[in-house]
Design a protein around this nucleic acid. Structure first.
Length: 410
RNA sequence: GCCAGGGUGGGGUAGUUGGUCAUCCUAGGGGACUGUGGAUCCCCCGACCCGGGUUCGAGUCUCGGCCCUGGCCCCA
């Protein structure tokens, strides 16, 4: 038997119902904040991703050559494609642009809990706004969306200027190594490395900074910064908004194009891969041939949100099943059509067996049985049987629809 | 790429000195039942992940691969 490719999944209707429900919540919240959905190609020029992230990521991507010899890659993320789209056809739109996306991405990695080779991301990009308020908006929207998705999470907010101020003047390679130690919270490794460089003093300050959870203390470690006002404004907005978060100057987000605020959100019940969201302020458009454009955004690991939620079936709508005799068939089709026009999920029995048999089958999943035979056909009526109470009524078609649509689903 | 534990009908399972026709539950399909409840009865479908090796004989032992689960690395 043929198997599906490694790291991919099939979704049966029960699971799709849940995914669509959460997807709908995320879309709805993004829209209420003024964000509009965009869509980019499933695959892009390979270069788009190597410009952003370096050649090293080629081995982590699905890369292929098309029949014209073009080097292409299945998208491993959506920020670069969305910013490419912005540069290609969004430059003249009035700013700021508020865009969101929900789409699948592909990475050639070892699957584990909450990590698949095909996975879905929900994300937003706020393009062309450069302010503490814009950064705060992105964080608050992230909070709203995840809260509405009904998972438990914690928000960590940092700012790259803080750490960079301490690393200023160091060799870029050194800076990168140090950021990696800090990102991994590997203080032992950090101490060893800085000691070998004769910078024990720096280690003390960096460790203190990464562990610092109070903004005033942060500035006593870093001293005054050009960005200080902006940073203080950001956090004062967050505080005024009643956001629950942890200040974390240790967030390094190993990428060079992040320029200021960075934040990460972690969920419970997730094992090793517990980050459900990452984002920050970045400059990327100029890499794709546009003008330098300050932007801010985040991406949610949708599949991880689903794992964190656990099994949670959305309430099904009311379901009606139609049982009918051969003489009632044509009237049954008319009735079913009218019910569907009224927005009621209506399933016609297809067995052609006895009424009893049809009702037995309908009763497995439906709330109402609509029974239609010769008598109903002749009087243009419908026998509506409530499968929970057992009661039944003979009604006109419009009354029958009213009876069923006015009810609560099971 | 690395480590650990796994892979028996669709789902869940039993199966050790290696030895009939591989167990049970459930789901699914068919039939009995043509105007009223998820029932009942009968029947059916359907599995040892794949490939090599050892053996008279492998679900069972062995090697390799694939896949799953968790972890490491990585995580744009």
């Amino acid at each position: 038997m043929l198997q599906k490719p490694r790291g991919t999944r099939d979704f049966l209707p029960d699971e799709m119902d849940q995914r669509r429900e959460v997807e709908g919540i995320m879309r709805r919240f993004a829209r209420t904040w003024g964000y509009r959905e965009v869509c980019t190609p499933e695959f892009e020029e390979l270069e788009l991703f190597t410009i952003r992230s370096g050649e090293g990521i080629i081995q982590e991507m699905y890369v292929f050559e098309d029949k014209g010899g073009r080097k292409l890659a299945l998208r491993p993320e959506l920020t670069a494609p969305v910013l490419r789209m912005y540069v290609n056809e969004g430059k003249t739109l009035p700013k700021p642009l508020r865009w969101f996306y929900f789409a699948d991405c592909f990475r050639y990695e070892r699957p584990q809990k909450g990590r698949y080779r095909q996975f879905w991301q929900f994300g937003i990009e706020l393009i062309g706004a450069d302010s503490a308020l814009a950064e705060a908006e992105v964080i608050l929207l992230a909070r709203d969306i995840l809260a509405a998705s009904d998972i438990s999470f914690s928000i960590h907010v940092g700012h790259l200027s803080l750490m960079r101020s301490l690393l200023d003047g160091l060799d870029p390679d050194d800076q990168k190594k140090i950021r990696m130690f800090l990102d991994k919270k590997d203080t032992g490794g950090l101490a060893m490395y800085l000691s070998s460089q004769g910078r024990d003093d720096l280690c003390t300050r960096l460790t203190a900074l990464a562990g610092c959870r109070d903004l005033n203390e942060v500035f006593t470690i870093t001293g005054d910064l050009p960005d200080r006002d902006r940073i203080e404004e950001l956090f004062s907005i967050l505080d005024a908004s009643g956001l629950e978060y942890t200040l974390n100057p240790g967030i390094a987000r190993g990428l060079d194009y992040y320029t200021g605020m960075v934040f990460e959100i972690f969920a419970e019940n997730l094992g090793a891969e517990n980050q459900v969201l990452g984002g920050g302020t970045y400059r990327l458009a100029h890499l794709f041939g546009g003008e330098e454009t300050p932007s801010c955004g985040f991406a949610i690991g949708f599949d991880r949100v689903m794992v964190a939620r656990g099994e949670r079936m959305p309430a099904p709508g009311t379901v009606a099943g139609v049982a009918f005799t051969p003489e009632g068939r044509d009237w049954a089709l008319t009735v079913a059509g009218a019910f569907r026009n009224a927005g009621i999920r209506t399933e016609l029995s297809l067995t052609g067996k006895s009424i009893g048999n049809q009702i037995a089958q309908i009763a497995r999943s439906a709330d109402y049985a609509l029974i239609i035979g010769k008598r109903e056909r002749e009087l243009q009526q419908v026998t509506v049987k409530n499968l929970r109470t057992g009661g039944q009524k003979v009604l006109s078609l419009s009354d029958a629809i009213g009876e069923v649509s006015g009810s609560e689903p099971r």
